[in-house]
Write a protein that binds this DNA or RNA. Structure first.
Length: 239
DNA sequence: CCATTAAACACCC
DNA sequence: GGGTGTTTAATGG
């Protein structure tokens, strides 16, 4: 039988290989797919966390907005990535919005399924530890770069996180994301993001394309402007 | 003083 | 129609 994109997504996930076959079958039966149009919310701040979400295709962003309309994007989740375990583990409500940047197909695993895996499958728990650790290190890096480096390095770093192999094992080298969205990710205005992108392009780390960016040198992006390494550049006032 | 940004604009996909 | 590249005036550190 031909398996659906949902089933493929589930069975190809890193944690799937740690489960007994019958348990994995059960997970596949209990999960379902949801299509989210561009701009629509998958989860909203304050609503009860009742599913674990995996991105089959498309792109999800995690963001918050203030009452006066300003917004900040923490990170994006690309194809193959999972999100929402934090609020799920706490049995609480979402602490941020999950918005589809473009039309996306999402794998939805009910909370009770997630709970069963966490409490009965040591391999799954091990995966979650690794996953949480990867996210923790992502956000530590974010604070580090936010405090030590300028806009170009911050943007480089934020882009690189979208290609983190621990979180998104199936990332290609192109991400379809407008420069406005990239700016939101890095905390920059659109035209400043545009300028930074071209700085990075001139450095040979990526290629600016229409409606997205192709990464040419992921390691270079990740360490852009980082001191310490051989021939490392120094912090502060770039340009 | 200098970098950044919002707003506005004209192309281009 | 949305994304992109630029200019301009305003803003804030």
């Amino acid at each position: 039988m031909p398996s659906s994109p949902l089933e493929t997504m589930l069975r190809d996930s890193v944690w799937a290989s740690t489960l007994p076959a019958d348990e994995l079958d059960q997970v596949v039966r209990e999960s379902y797919e949801r299509r989210v149009p561009a701009g629509a919310s998958l989860m909203r701040t304050g609503e009860p966390a009742d599913h674990w979400f995996g991105v089959i295709d498309g792109l999800l962003k995690m963001s918050v907005s203030t009452p006066d309309g300003r917004q900040s994007t923490f990170t994006g989740v690309t194809a193959g990535g999972w999100a929402g375990e934090g609020s799920l583990l706490k049995l609480s409500r979402w602490r941020y919005d999950g918005v589809a940047v473009r039309e996306s197909r999402i794998a939805c695993m009910p909370r009770h399924t997630f709970e069963r895996l966490v409490s009965t499958q040591i391999g799954f728990a091990r995966f979650l530890l690794n996953h949480l650790n990867a996210r923790l290190s992502l956000f530590i890096g974010l604070v580090e770069y936010d405090r030590l480096f300028g806009p170009d390095a911050r943007l480089a770093r934020c882009l690189a996180t979208l290609f983190n192999p621990d979180l998104y094992p199936r990332a290609g080298q192109f991400v379809a994301l407008s420069q406005e969205e990239i700016g939101l990710l890095a905390g920059l205005s659109r035209q400043r993001a545009n300028e930074s992108l071209h700085v990075l392009q001139r450095a040979g780390l990526l290629r600016v394309e229409f409606g997205g960016v192709t990464v040419l040198d992921l390691a270079g992006l990740r360490s852009f402007s980082a001191p310490g390494v051989p021939a490392g550049r120094l912090a502060a006032g770039q340009r």
